[in-house]
Protein backbone atom coordinates (compact mmCIF):
# COMPACT_ATOMS: atom_id res chain seq x y z
CA UNK A 1 0.00 0.00 0.00
CA UNK A 2 1.46 3.38 -0.98
CA UNK A 3 1.71 6.27 1.38
CA UNK A 4 -1.13 8.11 -0.32
CA UNK A 5 -3.37 5.12 -0.11
CA UNK A 6 -2.68 4.69 3.56
CA UNK A 7 -3.62 8.28 4.10
CA UNK A 8 -6.73 7.80 1.99
CA UNK A 9 -7.83 4.95 4.21
CA UNK A 10 -7.69 6.99 7.36
CA UNK A 11 -10.98 8.56 8.25
CA UNK A 12 -10.69 12.30 8.31
CA UNK A 13 -12.78 15.42 8.47
CA UNK A 14 -9.76 17.55 7.70
CA UNK A 15 -10.00 20.17 4.95
CA UNK A 16 -7.68 22.79 3.53
CA UNK A 17 -8.56 26.41 2.89
CA UNK A 18 -5.50 27.81 1.15
CA UNK A 19 -2.67 27.44 3.63
CA UNK A 20 -5.08 26.79 6.50
CA UNK A 21 -5.75 23.25 7.59
CA UNK A 22 -9.01 22.88 9.48
CA UNK A 23 -9.46 19.79 11.63
CA UNK A 24 -13.04 19.65 10.41
CA UNK A 25 -15.09 21.71 7.96
CA UNK A 26 -17.50 23.30 10.44
CA UNK A 27 -17.04 26.93 11.43
CA UNK A 28 -19.15 29.57 13.14
CA UNK A 29 -20.19 32.43 10.82
CA UNK A 30 -19.43 36.10 11.32
CA UNK A 31 -21.95 38.08 13.34
CA UNK A 32 -23.40 34.99 14.94
CA UNK A 33 -20.35 33.91 16.87
CA UNK A 34 -19.46 37.10 18.72
CA UNK A 35 -15.71 37.17 19.21
CA UNK A 36 -15.65 33.46 19.96
CA UNK A 37 -15.13 33.91 23.69
CA UNK A 38 -18.89 34.00 24.28
CA UNK A 39 -19.07 30.33 23.27
CA UNK A 40 -16.47 29.11 25.75
CA UNK A 41 -19.19 28.54 28.33
CA UNK A 42 -21.14 26.29 25.96
CA UNK A 43 -18.47 23.96 24.59
CA UNK A 44 -14.80 23.57 23.93
CA UNK A 45 -13.95 25.70 20.90
CA UNK A 46 -11.31 23.13 20.00
CA UNK A 47 -14.13 20.85 18.84
CA UNK A 48 -14.94 22.93 15.77
CA UNK A 49 -12.91 23.67 12.67
CA UNK A 50 -12.80 27.39 13.34
CA UNK A 51 -14.88 30.49 13.68
CA UNK A 52 -15.20 33.90 12.13
CA UNK A 53 -15.48 36.92 14.42
CA UNK A 54 -18.10 39.63 14.27
CA UNK A 55 -17.17 42.12 11.55
CA UNK A 56 -14.51 44.51 12.81
CA UNK A 57 -13.97 48.09 11.71
CA UNK A 58 -11.17 50.43 12.73
CA UNK A 59 -13.42 52.55 14.92
CA UNK A 60 -16.08 51.01 17.17
CA UNK A 61 -19.59 51.18 15.70
CA UNK A 62 -22.86 51.44 17.57
CA UNK A 63 -25.06 49.98 14.88
CA UNK A 64 -28.65 50.70 13.90
CA UNK A 65 -31.65 51.76 15.97
CA UNK A 66 -34.04 48.97 16.96
CA UNK A 67 -35.89 46.86 16.32
CA UNK A 68 -32.99 45.01 14.71
CA UNK A 69 -34.50 41.54 14.43
CA UNK A 70 -37.51 40.23 12.57
CA UNK A 71 -38.34 36.58 12.38
CA UNK A 72 -39.76 35.35 9.06
CA UNK A 73 -40.84 31.85 8.01
CA UNK A 74 -37.73 29.71 8.71
CA UNK A 75 -35.65 32.85 8.52
CA UNK A 76 -34.42 35.93 10.25
CA UNK A 77 -33.98 39.47 9.00
CA UNK A 78 -31.33 41.39 10.90
CA UNK A 79 -30.32 45.02 10.70
CA UNK A 80 -27.61 45.08 13.34
CA UNK A 81 -25.71 47.70 11.37
CA UNK A 82 -22.30 46.13 11.94
CA UNK A 83 -22.10 47.12 15.59
CA UNK A 84 -18.64 46.15 16.85
CA UNK A 85 -16.03 47.07 19.43
CA UNK A 86 -13.41 48.30 16.95
CA UNK A 87 -9.99 46.90 16.28
CA UNK A 88 -8.24 48.42 19.33
CA UNK A 89 -10.60 46.83 21.83
CA UNK A 90 -10.41 43.58 19.90
CA UNK A 91 -6.64 43.50 20.12
CA UNK A 92 -6.57 44.72 23.71
CA UNK A 93 -9.30 42.74 25.40
CA UNK A 94 -10.43 39.89 23.13
CA UNK A 95 -7.19 38.46 21.78
CA UNK A 96 -5.78 37.68 25.26
CA UNK A 97 -8.88 35.54 25.93
CA UNK A 98 -8.35 33.55 22.75
CA UNK A 99 -4.73 32.54 23.32
CA UNK A 100 -5.30 29.01 24.56
CA UNK A 101 -7.99 28.08 22.04
CA UNK A 102 -7.19 25.20 19.73
CA UNK A 103 -9.14 26.19 16.65
CA UNK A 104 -8.69 28.45 13.64
CA UNK A 105 -9.62 32.06 14.22
CA UNK A 106 -10.66 34.14 11.27
CA UNK A 107 -11.27 37.84 11.70
CA UNK A 108 -14.02 39.36 9.59
CA UNK A 109 -13.15 42.89 8.48
CA UNK A 110 -15.09 45.66 6.77
CA UNK A 111 -14.92 49.35 6.05
CA UNK A 112 -16.57 52.12 4.14
CA UNK A 113 -13.49 52.81 2.04
CA UNK A 114 -10.74 50.60 0.69
CA UNK A 115 -8.11 52.16 2.95
CA UNK A 116 -9.96 50.88 6.01
CA UNK A 117 -9.70 47.28 4.86
CA UNK A 118 -6.02 47.83 4.10
CA UNK A 119 -5.28 49.31 7.49
CA UNK A 120 -7.20 46.55 9.31
CA UNK A 121 -5.27 43.91 7.38
CA UNK A 122 -1.99 45.62 8.22
CA UNK A 123 -2.76 45.80 11.93
CA UNK A 124 -4.09 42.27 12.21
CA UNK A 125 -1.28 40.74 10.21
CA UNK A 126 1.08 41.13 13.15
CA UNK A 127 -0.99 38.87 15.37
CA UNK A 128 0.14 35.26 15.56
CA UNK A 129 -3.12 34.07 17.11
CA UNK A 130 -5.13 35.07 14.07
CA UNK A 131 -5.18 32.50 11.30
CA UNK A 132 -7.08 34.27 8.60
CA UNK A 133 -9.00 37.30 7.46
CA UNK A 134 -12.45 37.31 5.90
CA UNK A 135 -13.38 40.44 3.98
CA UNK A 136 -17.04 41.44 4.19
CA UNK A 137 -17.49 43.29 0.92
CA UNK A 138 -21.26 43.69 1.27
CA UNK A 139 -20.70 47.23 2.52
CA UNK A 140 -21.33 50.59 0.91
CA UNK A 141 -18.20 52.19 -0.53
CA UNK A 142 -18.58 55.79 0.57
CA UNK A 143 -16.12 57.09 -2.03
CA UNK A 144 -18.10 55.42 -4.81
CA UNK A 145 -21.37 57.06 -3.81
CA UNK A 146 -22.39 54.19 -1.54
CA UNK A 147 -22.31 51.40 -4.13
CA UNK A 148 -21.48 48.07 -2.51
CA UNK A 149 -17.86 46.97 -2.95
CA UNK A 150 -19.05 43.46 -3.59
CA UNK A 151 -21.16 44.25 -6.67
CA UNK A 152 -18.43 45.40 -9.04
CA UNK A 153 -15.94 42.76 -10.22
CA UNK A 154 -13.20 45.33 -10.81
CA UNK A 155 -13.62 46.84 -7.35
CA UNK A 156 -13.55 43.36 -5.82
CA UNK A 157 -10.31 42.54 -7.58
CA UNK A 158 -8.70 45.83 -6.56
CA UNK A 159 -9.71 45.69 -2.91
CA UNK A 160 -8.71 42.05 -2.60
CA UNK A 161 -5.29 42.81 -4.12
CA UNK A 162 -4.75 45.72 -1.73
CA UNK A 163 -5.54 43.59 1.28
CA UNK A 164 -3.52 40.68 -0.11
CA UNK A 165 -0.49 42.96 -0.26
CA UNK A 166 -0.79 43.59 3.47
CA UNK A 167 -1.31 40.10 4.81
CA UNK A 168 0.35 36.69 4.82
CA UNK A 169 -2.66 35.16 6.51
CA UNK A 170 -5.29 33.08 4.78
CA UNK A 171 -7.41 35.60 2.92
CA UNK A 172 -11.08 34.85 2.36
CA UNK A 173 -13.43 37.12 0.47
CA UNK A 174 -17.06 36.87 1.54
CA UNK A 175 -19.32 37.47 -1.42
CA UNK A 176 -22.65 39.24 -1.61
CA UNK A 177 -25.33 36.94 -2.96
CA UNK A 178 -27.29 39.58 -4.86
CA UNK A 179 -24.93 40.24 -7.75
CA UNK A 180 -25.33 40.01 -11.49
CA UNK A 181 -22.84 37.16 -11.74
CA UNK A 182 -21.46 35.44 -8.67
CA UNK A 183 -18.94 33.70 -10.94
CA UNK A 184 -17.48 36.99 -12.16
CA UNK A 185 -17.14 38.25 -8.60
CA UNK A 186 -15.54 35.01 -7.42
CA UNK A 187 -13.07 35.12 -10.31
CA UNK A 188 -12.21 38.71 -9.37
CA UNK A 189 -11.53 37.69 -5.78
CA UNK A 190 -9.27 34.94 -7.03
CA UNK A 191 -7.43 37.32 -9.35
CA UNK A 192 -6.99 39.70 -6.44
CA UNK A 193 -5.15 36.96 -4.58
CA UNK A 194 -7.81 35.49 -2.29
CA UNK A 195 -7.15 32.02 -0.85
CA UNK A 196 -10.86 31.23 -0.71
CA UNK A 197 -14.33 32.72 -1.08
CA UNK A 198 -17.21 32.49 1.35
CA UNK A 199 -20.56 32.16 -0.42
CA UNK A 200 -22.50 34.04 0.78
CA UNK A 201 -23.68 36.90 2.95
CA UNK A 202 -27.33 37.61 3.78
CA UNK A 203 -29.98 38.63 1.22
CA UNK A 204 -31.42 42.17 1.33
CA UNK A 205 -34.88 41.90 2.87
CA UNK A 206 -37.53 43.79 4.76
CA UNK A 207 -40.79 43.49 6.64
CA UNK A 208 -43.55 46.05 7.02
CA UNK A 209 -45.55 46.46 10.18
CA UNK A 210 -49.08 46.54 8.85
CA UNK A 211 -50.38 48.10 12.06
CA UNK A 212 -48.19 51.19 11.82
CA UNK A 213 -47.88 50.99 8.05
CA UNK A 214 -44.11 51.56 8.29
CA UNK A 215 -41.09 49.33 7.82
CA UNK A 216 -40.68 47.10 10.85
CA UNK A 217 -36.93 47.35 11.35
CA UNK A 218 -35.41 50.50 12.77
CA UNK A 219 -33.09 50.64 9.75
CA UNK A 220 -36.07 49.87 7.46
CA UNK A 221 -34.37 46.89 5.81
CA UNK A 222 -31.81 44.25 6.69
CA UNK A 223 -30.41 40.90 5.61
CA UNK A 224 -32.19 37.55 5.48
CA UNK A 225 -30.49 34.45 6.89
CA UNK A 226 -31.46 31.03 8.19
CA UNK A 227 -32.90 27.81 6.70
CA UNK A 228 -35.08 29.88 4.34
CA UNK A 229 -32.05 30.91 2.26
CA UNK A 230 -30.31 27.55 2.07
CA UNK A 231 -31.52 26.42 -1.35
CA UNK A 232 -30.69 29.80 -2.86
CA UNK A 233 -27.15 30.01 -1.53
CA UNK A 234 -26.58 26.34 -2.29
CA UNK A 235 -27.16 27.13 -5.95
CA UNK A 236 -24.65 29.97 -5.83
CA UNK A 237 -22.05 27.52 -4.52
CA UNK A 238 -22.98 24.97 -7.19
CA UNK A 239 -22.78 27.61 -9.92
CA UNK A 240 -19.37 28.80 -8.79
CA UNK A 241 -17.73 25.43 -8.22
CA UNK A 242 -15.40 24.51 -11.05
CA UNK A 243 -15.25 28.09 -12.28
CA UNK A 244 -12.52 29.09 -9.82
CA UNK A 245 -9.45 27.27 -8.54
CA UNK A 246 -9.69 28.39 -4.92
CA UNK A 247 -11.89 26.69 -2.32
CA UNK A 248 -15.43 27.75 -1.54
CA UNK A 249 -16.79 28.06 1.98
CA UNK A 250 -20.56 27.51 1.98
CA UNK A 251 -22.58 29.83 4.26
CA UNK A 252 -26.35 30.03 4.22
CA UNK A 253 -28.98 28.33 6.31
CA UNK A 254 -26.87 25.40 7.44
CA UNK A 255 -28.61 23.73 10.38
CA UNK A 256 -28.27 19.98 9.90
CA UNK A 257 -25.61 17.52 8.86
CA UNK A 258 -27.55 16.90 5.65
CA UNK A 259 -27.18 20.58 4.83
CA UNK A 260 -23.40 20.25 5.18
CA UNK A 261 -23.35 17.23 2.89
CA UNK A 262 -25.43 19.08 0.31
CA UNK A 263 -23.05 22.04 0.37
CA UNK A 264 -20.04 19.75 0.07
CA UNK A 265 -21.59 17.92 -2.89
CA UNK A 266 -22.32 21.29 -4.49
CA UNK A 267 -18.67 22.23 -4.15
CA UNK A 268 -18.02 23.71 -0.70
CA UNK A 269 -14.75 22.69 0.93
CA UNK A 270 -15.92 23.93 4.32
CA UNK A 271 -19.02 25.53 5.78
CA UNK A 272 -20.06 28.15 8.27
CA UNK A 273 -23.21 27.94 10.35
CA UNK A 274 -24.70 31.28 11.37
CA UNK A 275 -28.29 31.60 12.45
CA UNK A 276 -28.26 27.96 13.65
CA UNK A 277 -26.14 29.11 16.62
CA UNK A 278 -29.05 31.19 17.87
CA UNK A 279 -31.37 28.21 17.80
CA UNK A 280 -28.83 26.08 19.62
CA UNK A 281 -25.58 27.55 20.94
CA UNK A 282 -24.00 24.09 20.68
CA UNK A 283 -25.02 23.71 17.01
CA UNK A 284 -21.47 23.74 15.62
CA UNK A 285 -19.88 21.02 17.80
CA UNK A 286 -23.04 18.92 17.39
CA UNK A 287 -22.76 19.25 13.63
CA UNK A 288 -19.15 18.05 13.81
CA UNK A 289 -20.22 14.97 15.76
CA UNK A 290 -23.12 14.25 13.44
CA UNK A 291 -20.88 14.70 10.42
CA UNK A 292 -18.42 12.20 11.81
CA UNK A 293 -21.21 9.71 12.38
CA UNK A 294 -22.79 10.37 9.00
CA UNK A 295 -19.52 9.62 7.22
CA UNK A 296 -18.98 6.45 9.25
CA UNK A 297 -22.49 5.23 8.53
CA UNK A 298 -22.11 5.99 4.83
CA UNK A 299 -18.69 4.33 4.71
CA UNK A 300 -17.01 7.52 3.57
CA UNK A 301 -13.41 7.84 4.76
CA UNK A 302 -12.70 11.41 3.93
CA UNK A 303 -14.99 14.38 4.05
CA UNK A 304 -13.01 16.05 1.30
CA UNK A 305 -13.88 13.26 -1.13
CA UNK A 306 -17.40 14.69 -1.18
CA UNK A 307 -16.43 18.14 -2.37
CA UNK A 308 -18.03 18.85 -5.72
CA UNK A 309 -19.23 15.27 -6.16
CA UNK A 310 -22.59 16.45 -7.44
CA UNK A 311 -20.78 17.17 -10.71
CA UNK A 312 -19.49 13.65 -11.19
Amino acid sequence: MGKDEQYMNKKSLQVKIGKLTLKNPVMGASGTFGYGVEYKKFFSLGDIGGFVTKGLSIEPRKGNPGPRIKETPCGLINSIGLENIGVDAFLGSVIPQLRDIDTKIIVNIFGTEMEEYVELARRLNKLKRIDGLEMNISCPNVKAGGAEFGKDPLVVQTITRKVRDETDKALIVKLSPMVTSIIDIAISAQRGGADAVSIANTYPAMAIDIKSGAPFLGAKSGGLSGPAIKPVTLKLVYDTYGRIDIPIIGVGGISTVEDIIEYALAGASAVQAGTANFINPCATPQLVKQLDKYLSDAGIQQFKSLIGSAFR
Binding site: T32, G34, K62, P65, G66, R68, K70, E83, F278, P281
Partner: peptide, 23 residues
Protein backbone atom coordinates in the same frame (compact mmCIF):
# COMPACT_ATOMS: atom_id res chain seq x y z
CA UNK B 1 -37.54 43.71 26.99
CA UNK B 2 -36.20 43.67 23.47
CA UNK B 3 -36.46 41.38 20.50
CA UNK B 4 -33.84 38.72 20.88
CA UNK B 5 -32.34 36.20 18.52
CA UNK B 6 -29.70 34.54 20.70
CA UNK B 7 -30.17 35.63 24.33
CA UNK B 8 -26.48 35.25 25.17
CA UNK B 9 -24.84 38.31 23.74
CA UNK B 10 -23.65 37.37 20.27
CA UNK B 11 -26.27 38.57 17.77
CA UNK B 12 -26.49 42.20 18.97
CA UNK B 13 -30.16 42.16 18.07
CA UNK B 14 -31.26 43.37 21.49
CA UNK B 15 -28.93 46.35 21.72
CA UNK B 16 -30.37 49.56 23.14
CA UNK B 17 -28.71 52.94 23.50
CA UNK B 18 -28.40 54.31 27.03
CA UNK B 19 -28.73 57.99 27.98
CA UNK B 20 -25.13 58.59 26.96
CA UNK B 21 -25.66 56.86 23.64
CA UNK B 22 -23.61 53.82 24.62
CA UNK B 23 -24.73 50.40 23.49
Amino acid sequence: EARMACGFGVCLGCTIFDVEGNT
